[in-house]
Design a binder for these strands. Structure first.
Length: 321
DNA sequence: GGACCGGTGTCCTTAATCTT
DNA sequence: AAGATTAAGGACACCGGTCC
């Protein structure tokens, strides 16, 4: 479960003319980006997360003081969050919240609606007066509100940085169990792969997954890691070539960038870059066909050169800063 | 019901890749 | 070239299904 992808949204709401912060937390099930396990909604007053029709839960170590992207909080990954007083400019959010450029978003129900809502709010707040409160003051207000809510609401000391639902199923009532099952929350028993399915896996199927890490490939092929490893040995693949291919891809990309930069340069330079790129692409194809092949030593030298250049460029960039 | 087989998950090791 | 980081490999315990 540690690889679960978490999407999280914080936005301002104006229901009942009160300033309400909403936090939508989406936990995608077991790393599978298509299945959403549960949705939480932030409670009105303080850092508590209210399950829909459930108890109040505590989200620790999370203060929405600024814009967050990709921040990992325990098991949770924040895809987008901003403080009520600090709405981001639309241009900033365009990449992350654009479904066409970030296809992961498609897998999260109601997200499109939420994004639309957030962006509308963002536009509105841009035109509004800046808040009278500093972030620090808001934070203090929040803390006061927390204390209040502690008095009035029952609070489970569930840390959302750990897996939710750590309460054992036997402790839940039958109706709660049914509800959890309906939400897809209860741990599903992993079914073992049928032996005919394993036998049916052909080299072509495996080759299609070379671009993925072996764990993801095994998920794609619907078999366990051990099975896939054994299958690879059977098919004459001693090591999973994902890293070789990724490395060659990265070299091809940097050559592409170089080609862009050298557009105006001499024909010789352009030709040399294009030639090298073709060589790398051929090598990648060869490895895809013969995964046991080593990366050529010439390519390894070239890769080392690229690393050095990147390193120098970064160092110069840092000096410039 | 017990033995056996095979898949899964986990932990540690090792190799490959990347950074400095 | 050395060190750091990351990802794959391998071993092993556990569990569920099947067969006798």
């Amino acid at each position: 479960m540690a690889s679960s992808l978490i999407a999280l949204l914080v936005f301002e709401n104006n229901i009942n003319k009160e300033l309400v912060r909403s936090l939508h937390v989406y936990r995608l099930k077991d790393g599978k980006e298509k299945e959403v396990e549960r949705e939480f909604v932030f409670s009105v007053d303080g850092p508590y997360v209210e399950m829909k029709a459930g108890p109040i839960l505590r989200l620790r170590r999370f203060e929405v003081l600024e814009l967050f992207e990709g921040l990992v909080i325990g098991l949770w990954r924040c895809i987008f969050a901003f403080h009520v007083n600090n709405p981001p400019p639309l241009s900033h959010s365009s990449f992350l919240l654009s479904v066409s450029r970030n296809p992961k978003l498609k897998s999260i129900p109601t997200l499109a609606k939420d994004i639309h809502f957030i962006l509308k709010l963002s536009c509105k707040t841009d035109n509004e007066e800046p808040s009278r409160f500093s972030s620090k003051e808001i934070c203090e207000l929040d803390r006061d509100n927390c204390h209040q809510s502690k008095k009035s609401l029952p609070v489970l000391d569930q840390d959302l940085n750990c897996l939710p639902y750590s309460v054992s199923p036997s402790e839940l009532s039958k109706s709660e169990q049914i509800e959890l099952c309906a939400a897809g929350v209860m741990e599903k028993k992993k079914k073992r792969a049928a032996s005919e399915d394993i036998a049916r896996i052909a080299l072509e199927d495996v080759v299609k997954c070379f671009g993925l890490p072996i764990v993801e490939a095994s998920r794609n092929l619907k078999v366990g890691l051990t099975v896939l490893k054994r299958k690879c040995r059977e098919l004459g693949i001693p090591r999973w070539p994902h890293r070789k291919i990724k490395s060659l891809d990265s070299l091809i990309r940097s050559l592409q960038e170089e080609a862009e930069r050298h557009k105006q340069d001499s024909e010789d330079t352009t030709m040399a870059v294009a030639k090298r790129r073709r060589m790398l692409e051929r090598e990648k194809e060869t490895i895809e066909r013969k995964p046991f092949m080593e990366i050529q030593s010439e390519t390894k030298r070239f890769r080392q050169d690229v690393f050095k250049r990147r390193h120098r460029a970064r160092a110069l960039g840092n000096q410039g800063l």
